[in-house]
Amino acid sequence: MLKPTILVTGATGKTGGATIAQLLPMGYPVRALVRQMDHRSEQLRKAGAEIVIGSLEDTTDLRAAMTGVQRAYFCSPLEPGTLRRAALFAAAAQDSRLEVVAALSQWVASDNHPAAHAREKWLSDRMFHLAPGLDVVTINPGFFADNYMAALEPIAHFGLMGMPLGEGLNAPPSNQDIARVIVGALTNPGASANS
């Protein structure tokens, strides 16, 4: 039985790259959507991923990237425009009749969060789940573990951990752990719906 082709966006990033690194040895055909050909995308190509250059902001690019694809991982870059990119991706995924989309969200996504990005993530999550005929698994990790590593120098110098956690608790997942969840959602989506 042929395994479904999986599109990975954010392919040269933290979770996208880790997702590809786990899917390829499992024998899944992977198409990586990248902004440009560079050393990172070349490494993905050498590992066995099909490289497609395009933009999450262009429906023509998205539809072309989804041609022949059955499943996809959506990871919008951490920059303004999250909701717009999610809407374009959801529309292209519906048009392409994808079986399932695993969409990266964030633990603070909320309709009343003070940060516009967190509100856009919440709206993106809602929009994906309301899209007719589109099965979606929302990946909602806490603050990534590698973000703590970025704070090591100030911690060593000042003895303070200047992370925006307030009184909240967070079990920081690694990029590889987040990718394991994404891979599980993409390779066995029925189990994700039942858990």
Rank of each mutant, 00 (worst) to 15 (best):
D125F: 04
A191P: 09
I6N: 03
H117R: 06
I182C: 01
R45W: 13
A185K: 01
G81A: 07
G168A: 14
L130E: 15
G133L: 08
I182Y: 00
S124M: 13
D125P: 03
S195L: 11
F128H: 12
E79W: 08
V136K: 05
P164W: 05
F128D: 04
A156I: 12
R97D: 08
A87Y: 02
P132A: 06
L44D: 09
A118F: 06
V8L: 08
G27A: 03
Q176M: 05
G16M: 07
Y148D: 11
E167R: 13
A11Y: 08
E120W: 04
G48K: 12
T138Y: 01
D177S: 14
S192M: 08
L62V: 11
Q176E: 14
L56S: 10
G184P: 11
V52I: 10
Q94E: 03
R119M: 05
L44C: 10
N170K: 01
V8G: 05
P114I: 07
G68A: 14
Q22C: 00
A151I: 05
K46F: 15
M161Q: 12
H157R: 15
V137L: 02
D146L: 12
S174H: 08
G68Y: 11
G184D: 13
N194M: 14
N188R: 15
I6A: 06
A18E: 02
L186G: 03
A49M: 10
S76L: 07
A92D: 03
A87D: 05
P4E: 00
G142I: 06
L98W: 02
G159A: 05
R97P: 05
P25R: 02
G54D: 14
H117W: 03
I139Q: 02
Q106N: 10
V100C: 06
D135P: 06
P132R: 07
I178M: 02
L23W: 00
A118G: 04
A86Q: 01
D135N: 12
L152C: 06
S174L: 05
V183H: 06
I20H: 02
L123A: 12
G27L: 04
V181R: 03
L78F: 05
A92T: 01
G166D: 06
L2D: 01
L186Y: 01
A116S: 11
A47I: 10
T5C: 07
R180C: 01
P164H: 07
L134C: 13
A72M: 06
A64S: 15
G168K: 13
I155V: 13
H113V: 01
E79L: 13
P4Q: 00
D95P: 02
A118W: 12
T5F: 00
K46E: 15
N140T: 15
P132W: 06
